[in-house]
Amino acid sequence: MDKSMLADLDSLPEEDKVRMSTMIDQLQIRDSLRMYNSLVERCFTDCVDTFRRKTLDKQEETCVRRCAEKFLKHSMRVGMRFAELNQGAATPD
């Protein structure tokens, strides 16, 4: 969001600020649910390839656990780097 837009937001009355923060919350909820669905899809695709039984075997379960943990750690690391770059972009450099 660039600064001129934030300036406009400052001039909004209290009820609009509440509305804006509700909107942000809603987008974050939607975002985390989507990330969750993508994580499940990826770990399923990478770890489950045989369909002779209807339950996960031990090996598949271990694979899914590691995949999910790796993805979460990856996602947090990307988040930190992304935040640094976002801040850097606002400074003269």
């Binding site: 975002d31 990330m35 993508s38 990826r42 990478d46 694979c63 790796k70 990856h74 992304f82």
Partner: peptide, 16 residues
């Protein structure tokens, strides 16, 4: 999200 997915595919070995 696209950055996260793309870099996971490029960098993380998928045998876990």
């Amino acid at each position: 999200n696209k950055l996260t997915q793309t870099c996971f595919s490029k960098c993380v070995e998928n045998r876990y």
